[in-house]
Nucleic acid binder design. Sequence first.
DNA 1: GAGATTAACTTGGTCGGCCAAGGAATGCGC
DNA 2: GCGCATTCCTTGGCCGACCAAGTTAATCTC
Lengths: 180, 180
Amino acid sequence: MKAETGTAGAAQADPACSERLPLAAQDGPVSMTISRVARLHRIAAGKVLKGLGLYPGQEFVMMHLWDAGPVRQSDLIKAVDLDPSTVTKMLQRLEQAGHVRRRPDPDDRRAVLVEATDASCGLLTEVRRSWGDLEDHTLAGLDPAERAELARLLGRVETNLCVETADCPEEAARRAALRR
Amino acid sequence: MKAETGTAGAAQADPACSERLPLAAQDGPVSMTISRVARLHRIAAGKVLKGLGLYPGQEFVMMHLWDAGPVRQSDLIKAVDLDPSTVTKMLQRLEQAGHVRRRPDPDDRRAVLVEATDASCGLLTEVRRSWGDLEDHTLAGLDPAERAELARLLGRVETNLCVETADCPEEAARRAALRR
DNA sequence: GAGATTAACTTGGTCGGCCAAGGAATGCGC
DNA sequence: GCGCATTCCTTGGCCGACCAAGTTAATCTC
């Protein structure tokens, strides 16, 4: 889509056939692949979600709302583990799009209760199907054993990345473990 | 960092102990993990890069510039495979930050030549080191065989995702194959 | 060589993300 | 009860990323 006819001149000259990896990235080939896969995966998800009226990232919020019903916004924020401001703005857009309803919490005048609209619940099935299609496409050509192994390894990577990300290793490890 | 003391109320009530995965995502567990790993990995990369004066995403542009020297912007765009407008704005910021120099191409008055500044070249080593650290951290606890397997599987996933992303499957497959 | 096409950016808009800072309500200590 | 810290959410700013549209220059066509 970006790289078209590929007569692109000399920049991509593969000298010999040695290293396709940038010099500065040679100590991190897997990290490089993760980055690329991440982007491709997000694009693929976004493409399929666009047809449903969702932007990439919103899926996770909606998924939690479908599961949990009316939730305090702060709980939602903890569930999806995003910055509060990110969630606020996303919810404003989701509300305007009619996917979400918000109302003040009668028990706590600071808090806001969020829930998926009835209309949006129709999306659940389609999102689930799309998500399944994405999975199929992502894992095409991998047999069950390979899929399991990939899941295992990615799980381990997730745990690894969690520990450093969080300021409190213990807590991060606990959370990472929970997801497994 | 976000999920703190975790007394978070009833929202995350693990009913029984069955599914930690949202209902709508149950057909795509690996996709879910990929999304989480992607975000964590980007955050980890961003954290380490911030100390070097780079924002996440800029690394890839700089890496290519360090390798390729002065390049036409259009070639750079093809190399990193991003939207032209994304690269334009990123370069404006990189230029203002002193990491990059831009000048018109004498041979083509439409085009712009981009190169890393001498100052930025000092970053190469540090970025490489950081990238290596990130790799170590990401793959901690995996033995060489597991790392190789993960790389192989991710490569396959990348190929899979490439085909659908591009409008021309042939071209995408070719490009995907090139990266392996 | 004039006219249409294509290539190479740029600008403006929108979203997802983050950080920093602020305002409002609650809860705690005393 | 009063004050101070916490919690909850919002706003503004910034950056990466996309799309759509527009501008300028090269190129192709006749």
